[in-house]
């Protein structure tokens, strides 16, 4: 750096600007600039606003990590929102109604997520059903299971007793732990959980041979198979990982709502996919990464927050979000022409 001439620095800047990461980064900077312009009487400059934006984006972000793994194999996972609801319901029943310890609740929840993901994975990779259809079926199935397990009602701290009345139980320690803040109240624990998930997914994707296999499958599945990549195994595992991350998101959702809502997570799968795509990961597979997804999560998370603090009416929000997603994706695609 210290030896480089101004021209070299400029070239490096242009290079960065035309890479996917550079473009996603610019989009995020632009979003922050919009925030400073429309700062809602200075609310945008408060630490709390940023902490809340990150908290709000965290559940989506955890789902987006799983979706990134699947999308890199040229697949798609539509079931994440429903699996989130199923796990939120199971988690609340175990933690609130049955009073199980968090040490037992979390592993069981993760297992439920893995099993759901595994089902989609086997149907997709082994039975070779298109991922769109396989995960669409799981989306409906998991939503039904969530409604069945909860009896159609939210699983809350008001527990029905034998005489038809309600007993009120305390919010379980697990929920309190997840829905709290650290660093002097400046960082939500769910955001930390999101960052841990992101880091693990990044390690798996860019440092482990499994990650390289996912890229190879997404680039050209037949070529990957011929060059000895365990296609079925690697692909199934991608869906299992997505299911497990959905379970993590489900636990976070239940903890933040203090209840298990069988209707939770409707439409979250599309939000997660939008975050992945805005980051610059290609829906065609083989290109992208976790760092890009982080940028996508932050961009949409901040967009959401800026619209919210300015109390923009719902109709305007939807239109603006649509326009911004298209714009962001268009800038991402320019480099490929």
């Amino acid at each position: 750096m210290n030896e480089s001439s101004p021209i070299q620095t400029r070239n490096r800047f242009v290079q960065f600007g035309s890479s996917p990461a550079g473009r996603a980064f610019l989009a995020l900077l632009l979003m922050l600039l919009v925030g400073t312009l429309f700062n809602a009487d200075g609310a945008f400059f408060k630490i709390g606003t940023h902490r809340d934006a990150l908290r709000q984006a965290s559940v989506y972000g955890i789902l987006a990590c799983g979706s990134t793994l699947v999308i890199i194999t040229a697949g798609i996972d539509l079931a994440v929102g429903s699996v989130l609801a199923l796990v939120a319901v199971c988690c609340s029943m175990m933690a609130i109604h049955w009073g199980w310890s968090g040490w037992l609740v979390v592993p069981v929840c993760l297992l439920v997520g893995c099993a759901s993901g595994g089902l989609a994975g086997v149907v997709t990779a082994r039975l070779r059903v298109q991922p769109f259809i396989a995960t669409l079926a799981l989306m409906v199935l998991a939503r039904g299971a969530a409604k069945y397990a909860s009896g159609g009602m939210k699983v809350s701290t008001a527990v029905k007793n034998a005489s038809g009345g309600y007993d009120y139980v305390d919010v379980p320690a697990l929920f309190r732990l997840v829905d709290t803040r650290i660093l002097g109240g400046n960082l939500s624990v769910v955001t930390v959980i999101f960052l841990i998930c992101l880091a693990l997914a990044w390690l798996a994707l860019s440092k482990h041979s499994w990650g390289r296999h996912l890229y190879a499958i997404g680039g050209n599945e037949e070529a990957a198979r011929l060059s000895g990549v365990p296609v079925v195994w690697a692909k199934t595992l991608a869906y299992v990982a997505s299911g497990m991350l959905s379970a993590v998101a489900g636990i976070c959702q239940a903890a933040q709502e203090q209840q298990g809502d069988p209707e939770a997570g409707v439409g979250y799968e599309l939000m997660a996919i939008a975050m992945v795509v805005i980051g610059g990961t290609s829906l065609m597979g083989g290109r992208g990464g976790m760092g890009l997804t982080l940028l996508g999560v932050l961009t949409i998370g901040y967009l959401d927050k800026i619209l919210s603090i300015n109390a923009v009416p719902e109709a305007g929000r939807l239109m603006l979000t649509g326009i911004i997603i298209v714009t962001a994706v268009l800038t991402q695609q320019r480099k490929r022409t």
């Binding site: 609310a43 606003t49 809340d52 709000q56 809502d261 927050k305 919210s308 603090i309």
Partner: peptide, 23 residues
């Protein structure tokens, strides 16, 4: 002083309330 459409949804209500609190 602040009104927002939370679409009957608890997570959305929490998000909007956070915005109101920071403003």
């Amino acid at each position: 002083i602040f009104s927002a459409d939370m679409k009957w949804l608890e997570p959305d209500a929490r998000k909007e309330m956070e915005s109101a609190l920071s403003r």
